[in-house]
Nucleic acid binder design. Structure first.
Lengths: 132, 132
DNA sequence: ATGTAAAATAGGAATCATTACTATTTTATA
DNA sequence: TATAAAATAGTAATGATTCCTATTTTACAT
């Protein structure tokens, strides 16, 4: 049951911490592979799942059919650009309030919240304006 | 390009409207099949996707690996019980405010919002209290 | 009513992200 | 060092969803 150290897990974790976007398992794999060519995709998945279960990282499902992983476990929400697919952080002050409000009107126990906005990011808006 | 009527699509849509939970494609299939035994799962998927693209229903990804479908397209959020897996509606008044707040501090165009709470629902809490 | 073209269907095959399996290797510890 | 638990690589399996195609249905003009 106790977790033992592994170089692979360390690399996966470290890589995730360097990224502000929210890479998929495959992106993690492709990157960690540069430094550790023999690592297998299964190992990446297993460790991402393990780290997420332990609360050290966060698994995101933003609706593009692929899981994303976030090294930042603080309460924050995300924005998904429906044009380029990028997932970025979006800071909002009212999340704590929202949490307590939801809890007040609900008879179960709320443990986690996940908010995601969808639309077109600034860069993609610019891109389209130039085109037309 | 123009959409033609089909009995199958009608049944799928009608079924979704009778439900307050948020069934998966397979649940829709199993139910519609009672009334229309020859319908195929592919048809269910195709029509759910088509209706969602047209904005007549809503596709939900709550993180259990399966897509859920919601006949209510108004702005509301959801609660997922991590114990029984049920997905229920959760009404909150501040969603509009949240939307405009998010838009104010963000330089892209926000079109959609999706908020999901996770925890243990009232029924499951009761269940566990009785047990111990 | 009938013919016709576009749209939809049933059924099955294909895809693809993720998980499961297993023999081997690595880690921690006595 | 010896040993048991944990982790890995590599590959097979799973399962939700999409794709494909021959056939059927719908809408509409004649």
């Amino acid at each position: 049951m106790a977790m033992k150290y592994s170089r692979q897990r360390q690399l996966i974790y470290n890589f995730l911490m360097t990224r502000k976007d929210h890479p998929t398992a495959d992106v993690v794999y492709q990157n960690v592979r540069q430094e550790f060519p023999n690592i297998s995709l299964g190992t990446v998945y297993r460790n991402l799942t393990l780290l997420a279960d332990r609360g050290e990282i966060q698994r995101l499902q933003v609706g593009d059919g692929v899981d994303h992983f976030d090294g930042d476990t603080s309460r924050h929400c995300h924005f998904v650009c429906t044009d380029c697919g990028n997932v970025t952080d979006l800071q909002m002050d009212c999340l704590d309030d929202m949490f307590t409000m939801a809890q007040r009107s609900f008879d179960g126990r709320i443990e986690k919240q996940m908010t995601c906005f969808y639309g077109v990011c600034g860069e993609c808006l610019d891109k389209h304006t130039v085109k037309s």
